[in-house]
Write a protein that binds this DNA or RNA. Sequence first.
DNA 1: TTAATTAATCAATTTTTTTGAATAAATGCA
DNA 2: TGCATTTATTCAAAAAAATTGATTAATTAA
Lengths: 414, 414
Amino acid sequence: MLTGTNLQHAKLYNVRIVLETIRLYGPLSRVEIARRTNLTAQTVTNITRQLLKSNLILVRDHIQNGRGAPSVLLGIKPTGAYSIGLDLDETHLTGVLMDLMGTIRQRKSVEISLPSPDEAIRLLESFTRELIALEQLPMEKVWGVGVGLPGPLGVSEGGVVTNVFNPKAMAGWNNVPVVSLLSQRLGIPVFLENNASAAAIGERWFGAGRHIGTFFYVFFGAGLGGGLIINGQMYPGFTGNAGELGYFPVVRSDAKLNQDDRPHLGAYFNLPKLYARLGESGVKISHPNELEQLYSDGNPVLNEWIETGTDQLAPFILGIEYLIDPQAIFFGGRLPDVIIRAMVNRLQRILPSLRIHARVESPELLCATAGTDAASLGVATLPLYTSFAPVPKSMEKKVKNAKASSKTNPLKAF
Amino acid sequence: MLTGTNLQHAKLYNVRIVLETIRLYGPLSRVEIARRTNLTAQTVTNITRQLLKSNLILVRDHIQNGRGAPSVLLGIKPTGAYSIGLDLDETHLTGVLMDLMGTIRQRKSVEISLPSPDEAIRLLESFTRELIALEQLPMEKVWGVGVGLPGPLGVSEGGVVTNVFNPKAMAGWNNVPVVSLLSQRLGIPVFLENNASAAAIGERWFGAGRHIGTFFYVFFGAGLGGGLIINGQMYPGFTGNAGELGYFPVVRSDAKLNQDDRPHLGAYFNLPKLYARLGESGVKISHPNELEQLYSDGNPVLNEWIETGTDQLAPFILGIEYLIDPQAIFFGGRLPDVIIRAMVNRLQRILPSLRIHARVESPELLCATAGTDAASLGVATLPLYTSFAPVPKSMEKKVKNAKASSKTNPLKAF
DNA sequence: TTAATTAATCAATTTTTTTGAATAAATGCA
DNA sequence: TGCATTTATTCAAAAAAATTGATTAATTAA
């Protein structure tokens, strides 16, 4: 719907712009903020006064450049707010407690084997409570919990993502209202996102994507996923599954894949299948971190897995270049950095021979910066993202009778 | 850059929202506009007063539903503004004069053969002047000229698209500052866009895409192009070539293609090549409209061309589904409707067998509504689009010293 | 004929940014 | 050392826009 704006929302928009400017380029003086945002110094004074009072920013330093009064540098106050990220898939759960600067303050991880929804919800709750207890925080300081699940996810009527339509990978997980179940138990807002998109959001907010407006994120989890950031915001697609290249059908069946699968790209990146194949060759592992040692040992099964997977992936990377034309393509997830780097290097060798000269410029292929906790860091950004991102939507007027989410919105003071 | 907003721009945003609401859903009463936009009735009264004074809207009717004062229905005034669209490629030039409602009032077309930039600029100018003369309009009523060229286009340093990097298809057209050359001669704003993206914009504004926020547009021109609308706005990509699937390399070389080409998808849809192949079989044609007769005659060369092209296209359509996840995929351009429909029907047969069950929903495949003038209609919308679309950018504060484009901006009154 | 209802507008108020002046702190130079 | 200059920040009044509450006008229902 086309929705008008009003003064209150113009102000909220400016508050978010100021906060985001400080976060991305700070610490900054008030005049510098004014210069960057095209707001007047007076307006910046007014906004920063409220942000200081709300404990979201703090005075970092006093510096002087040349003559004149010294600048008061303002920066984000890391302890101004916290957020929890929980990344769950059929093989593991990782939980992190993150501060406003994106620093991971607490971390917990456990290897599991396809939990039932009941078990999982209990586990998610206890992880959350333990992480908060470890940091000795009051519940009010935690703005919310982000939960990541493997895609593709479905969207329920109410607009809330609650279901998992991935019967093979997460059996028994159809129609599970994760959001309402968990938020009832915890009493704070819960956000759900597929782990690939979440990792992309994390990269955008706290990684190398901070200054890249449009990029694709190739995510290696238990399988293969993808997320898309367009004009600085996560782009979900119409059904919420944009970038989901894991289930893209591949033309030729490969003898090494299970025969009961319709051949699809994600099968080449399925970790349990890799573990099984390594097991056949006499190497027993159960955690992606163990792959690092195998790689430096030059394990032939692993090497072949990397090469086959990368070769299958290459045409899709080309497809991303031609269809989406992003500034960069990130590669990240639960695989060790060295293996991701090996894949990127191989892609950089393969792709030029596939491209046609007419292309002016090609996107950079980059290793993601968040490491193996990318997904949990990503989902942890969801509560902050929802409150803070200066998206056009925040310009829209709030309908008067709308059920005030303002109770939980940390910017309610503005 | 992150830019704050202020009262003036919030107002401009609301003006655009009101205008767009009337355009899409009108004629509407003021209260109805207020209801749809969440603006107050008083605000709508103020804004519509100015729009009436500016001659952009008019009173269409007085109706009453039940008791109470009758509603005054407001609608877009078609003659409130005009715009010119010029679609140029190596084989033809089509020019249209469009009113504010998207109705084509005048039309001119000529078949040409790879004009030099000099010849082309002269031709574009004379087309523009003739179209305006035919409608007997003063120059001030024409808000601008949109020019469409085959992609991929490059972007010059100043941010203005001026160059054509398509040496094969448009030889001699490197580094031609089309925008500045033509706007100097005409004295009104000139906009340049690749014809596929332009057709997508046209479909979004005046076609079936009016109520579809996110779609892909497959464009059949002299070759194959593509355009992308995301959240209601044209998405150009980082280098300006998103959706440009014409130059996507295809794996297997086809004997029927020229050997000097690197095999790419667009070669299967190249019209001059089709004409040549038809010529070999004894059928001489030179205009896409003549294909309609051939198709109803069941010409075997044409049928095979359609089938081969569609089969090659199918995996890319699947790629669009998985990567971009749009609500719909439109097919349009200079080919006759029956041929486009045949391709869409064939795709609808092929695609289900390629998809994997896990996909929840697939985008609709739709024939575009603008007919063979899609591209010229599309570029004609560019001047209006730039002035009117309620894009987030219009929320950003204008820098004070910025070279006032307001001289030419029809909304300067606000 | 009169009360009720709805559309639209007038006038006063509120919210926010802007503008112009004032204050404070440091530097550069006589 | 003293003072003009420069720069950052804030105070106070003004301007711009949407909102609120009251008013006017047109029509239907009883």
